[in-house]
Write a protein that binds this DNA or RNA. Structure first.
Lengths: 347, 347
DNA sequence: CTGAAAGCGCTTACAG
DNA sequence: CTGAAAGCGCTTACAG
């Protein structure tokens, strides 16, 4: 391992000078500068950033706490974080809480072990002196008080903390559901059923708002019987779609609040001998990879995950540099992916 | 930020003593030990590992270079790395080359930019003084000479370097294909077609070997016309399955070398009016998430990705600690996932 | 059992 | 334009 001191000796200058040329700081004559650079190249010198960080009290390293890297939303968000980090020369320390692997579907109801994992992760990152933290959730939900008296900037994404709303980066759930519903309405559907997530979930409420707004705005009839509450899983989509469809005058379209339930709905139609989209149109949410492989390929809302990552990173960097934060930042928008599960209604 | 020096002053001992109790090294009387611990707790002291690393020339941090975190194999491998790292108190610096995003399907043929990204990643990790590196590929292929004169331990997974075969961790491709083929044979299939990847791909060759071995071992007839060379994409599975099936005496089963091509084959059957699995059985490879959502749900080989991660990590740590490496380590095995796309042949 | 001191590889305010 | 020196927060060989 070759040090600045070795360069200094060979180049016959002080270590200060080496540092100046390496960092383009101070003023160094062209001659000594070239001399130093030559020795640096000859010895294939690689700076030790750990020493630099200790001195400067800045690591240019961001801690990323991800609740579970194997859950579908995480890799794209991390990719966005990396994308932005590369342009800003920031490194990423990744801690993966493996929440879903540890607790399965129950992760929402295991606050104790959750807190323990989170604080362990935080402790590790603090000891590594990261300049800030991005916390990546696996479900949009309230996480205030997960960490007590933070001593370091943090931004949340795919989840949020009420005590720092400007530091939570999430996409526009309501607008996404509004758009999906409107897409159906534009194709002549007037009776649009909804398979929702659990009531105590934020995305459920927001997506319901979007749905309701589109229905009202187009003077359609809001029919409570066409709203069914599911649990995000395939089976609930399957069961609820059947209930929805086996009535006297069924809806002509179903908006499922995620792709898993939409898939259940598609399979329910197959079982009922109904053709999608000829007899009933189905639209999902999330644009999971599998959604394009369903039969028929599912029309669904794509989540702006990559953008969540870049926006988290830019927000965090602004925090770290004490730049002014945009006050009401625009929430990234979902994008409709048109495939084969929606048809116009024939009048 | 509170330092060891602050603790020392309040506890009326030297900084050396603080260090001893914090690290359980040296010998400290119970009395002073408790006194120190109390001050540490009172001040909520958090050690600065960057300073420790500088002194010890060891960071307990592993650099993970992943070619693309958004490609399906990567998250599970990283999860395995994290899993093992947690038990060994290692941190992970993640650099994501975003290879697929940068170059798309052509990543195999863009060696120049690949080398550039890789060396930039390596440089970043070296400057952070990581103790070792795990390189996670997105396609099993030869990567010798990607890095010139390495000064740090590295292990490759989901790819390999010929100059250090013991440091490349990959699953047993051949055995996986053998198992899949045998599964079909056990169900009475005697004419089994194969949709392969490109010939210049290592997994193609290894999987072909496994297929061939199972055919020979069971004294079936090897029929070259039943072997078609695809390109891993849906379309090639679709096209080739049609060719395979529209002959006088078609195979009763198709082994596709990945799930994407298997999906294409399923769709080809639908178009030909053939029922899967009644008329033809289809088996895939990879166990991609979508494979369970196909109609019918695809029987396929699951890749031991998590294990690839843990084994990479244990190998790397052995390297770093200069422990002896197992000489011919067992390759992690694929596991057959039985779903609905394979039936027994009726005699 | 405890402490004084050197040193890990950098940066920078200051003096010349 | 250049260098001597202090200091970032730790650890540890050594002396007592």
């Amino acid at each position: 391992m070759i040090r600045i001191k070795d360069i200094a000796k060979l180049a016959n200058v002080s270590t200060a000078t080496i540092s100046y040329v390496l960092n383009d700081s101070g003023s160094v004559s062209l001659e000594t500068r070239n001399k130093v650079l030559k020795v640096v190249a000859d010895l294939n010198y690689k700076p030790n950033n750990i020493a630099k960080s200790l001195k400067l009290k800045k690591t240019n390293t961001i801690g990323v706490i991800v609740e579970d890297i194997t859950v579908f939303n995480s890799p794209e968000i991390v990719d966005g974080i990396n994308d932005y980090a590369n342009t800003e020369n920031q490194s990423i320390i990744l801690t993966n809480m493996r929440l879903f692997k540890h607790t399965g579907q129950n992760f929402l109801y295991q606050p104790d072990s959750h807190v323990e994992y989170a604080q362990r992760a935080m402790k590790e990152l603090m000891s590594k002196q990261v300049d800030g933290i991005i916390y990546v959730g696996i479900h949009t939900r309230e996480l205030t008080n997960l960490f007590n008296n933070l001593q370091i900037p943090i931004v949340y994404t795919y989840c949020y903390a009420n005590d720092q709303p400007d530091l939570s980066v999430n996409y526009d759930d309501e607008f996404g559901a509004y758009d999906a519903t409107k897409y159906l309405i534009d194709r002549g559907h007037e009776k649009i059923a909804l398979i929702s997530g659990p009531i105590d979930s934020d995305p459920t409420r927001l997506r319901f708002n979007g749905y309701y707004k589109a229905i009202m705005e187009h003077q359609l009839i809001f029919e409570p019987n066409d709203i069914k509450t599911g649990n995000w899983e395939f089976d609930s989509g399957f069961t609820l779609a059947k209930e929805l469809l086996q009535v006297a005058k069924p809806a002509t379209a179903i908006l499922a609040m995620n792709d898993l339930m939409a898939s259940g709905a598609i399979h329910a139609c197959a079982e009922l001998g109904l053709s999608v989209p000829r007899d009933v149109s189905i639209i999902g949410f999330d644009n999971r990879e599998f959604s394009g492989h369903l039969t028929p390929a599912l029309t669904t809302m794509d989540l702006p995950l990559h953008e969540l990552g870049t926006q988290s990173m830019s927000t965090l960097l602004a925090l770290i540099n004490k730049d002014e934060l945009p006050h009401n930042p625009i929430k990234p928008r979902c994008k409709l992916i048109e495939r084969d599960s929606v048809a116009s209604v024939s009048k």
